[in-house]
């Protein structure tokens, strides 16, 4: 192994190691090895700072940068689980799932899967918290995913049951057990609306958040998270809409997706044609159908 690679691996091991509860670099790592000895071996001290203290600057910068990015991405989840639990969750997730991308935009990409493995972090409001994590990640994806060329009226007129319809890369559909869309909008409005930054204003905001979260009742909702004129929107869907879009996103033909949408549906047969017409017209108007790879 090259000396450069060895040094970089050793320094990265120190920097990526979790901080103590008081946000300092631990003198001993979780595996029992000494950070002090490792710092002394790698880093020169100066007349003001020991080797350990110099390495600690980078260790703390790493974690503070990640905390800040993660908190910015998941304010709704934080409001649901509360500050203390969110901090534990955040440390656990970022330790298990460090960034593997050049951009911090992807930091939360594995959160939902990780929470499914470690649900204790979101108890006792597990279902609500999981829904919020899904919505907040979908929002990030909808914000800056690609946008393909939209199908025009002639393209749409040519499709049949066997056609494959490609949807915009920014579109996400979610099946949720709580109306977290409303909750997230309220929380965001609230955070953005305060013109004060005093502790009093912040405490009052926190109390309001707690009350709002406590008041959220279960409600099965289906949601499209999409982008229009470069703003992200949440659009409530009928169950049939959701299943139809989900089928199309999974690559089913139009006919197969329609069958999946109406399986178990209570919508009377004679209303299904009008329902489909309205759904397709609305989605076409929103520009969700794209030209690429469509038949």
């Amino acid at each position: 192994m090259s000396e450069l690679l060895e040094i970089q691996r050793r320094v990265a091991a120190a920097i990526l190691h979790p901080l103590t509860r008081t946000e300092t670099m631990p003198r001993r790592r979780q595996d029992g090895s000494s950070n002090v000895r490792e710092a002394d071996a790698l880093i020169k001290p100066n007349d003001r700072l020991s080797s350990f203290e110099r390495l600690e600057i980078y260790n703390r910068q790493y974690w503070f940068r990640l905390y800040s990015s993660f908190e910015e991405d998941f304010p709704g989840l934080k409001a649901i689980v509360g500050n203390a639990k969110f901090e534990t969750l955040m440390r656990g997730y970022l330790t298990d799932c460090p960034s593997t991308s050049f951009t911090l935009r992807n930091l939360g990409s594995r959160l939902v899967k990780w929470l499914e493995e470690y649900p204790e972090h979101v108890e006792p409001r597990r279902a609500l918290a999981m829904d919020m994590a899904r919505l907040e990640w979908a929002h990030i994806e909808a914000f800056d995913s690609g946008e393909e060329e939209v199908l025009d009226a002639d393209d749409l007129a040519a499709i049949n049951d066997n056609s494959l319809l490609r949807l915009q890369p920014y579109l996400r559909v979610l099946e949720l057990r709580y109306p977290v869309d409303d909750l997230l909008i309220e929380l965001r409005n609230e955070s953005g609306s305060s013109d004060a930054s005093s502790n009093n204003a912040s405490s009052a905001r926190k109390r309001k958040h707690v009350r709002r979260v406590a008041a959220v009742e279960p409600e099965e909702i289906f949601l499209a998270v999409h982008r229009h004129e470069n703003s992200v929107y949440y659009k409530r869907l009928h169950r049939e809409d959701f299943l139809l879009l989900k089928g199309l996103l999974e690559g089913l033909s139009i006919g197969a997706a329609i069958n999946a949408a109406f399986a178990g549906s209570s919508l009377p047969d004679d209303q299904r044609g009008a329902f489909l017409h309205e759904a397709f017209a609305s989605w076409a108007a929103l520009g969700w159908f794209t030209r690429q790879n469509s038949n």
């Binding site: 090259s2 000396e3 450069l4 690679l5 040094i7 970089q8 691996r9 320094v11 990265a12 920097i15 990526l16 980078y58 910068q61 790493y62 940068r65 990640l66 460090p98 960034s99 593997t100 991308s101 050049f102 911090l104």
Partner: peptide, 25 residues
């Protein structure tokens, strides 16, 4: 500078060891 190793990113601008090997790489 450097900032990633083995596919993990620090998102920081970490100083180099000023060695001849590092110059070459």
């Amino acid at each position: 500078c450097w900032g990633s190793v083995d596919g993990r990113y620090t998102h920081d601008l970490l100083p180099m060891p000023y060695t001849w090997e590092a110059v070459k790489v």
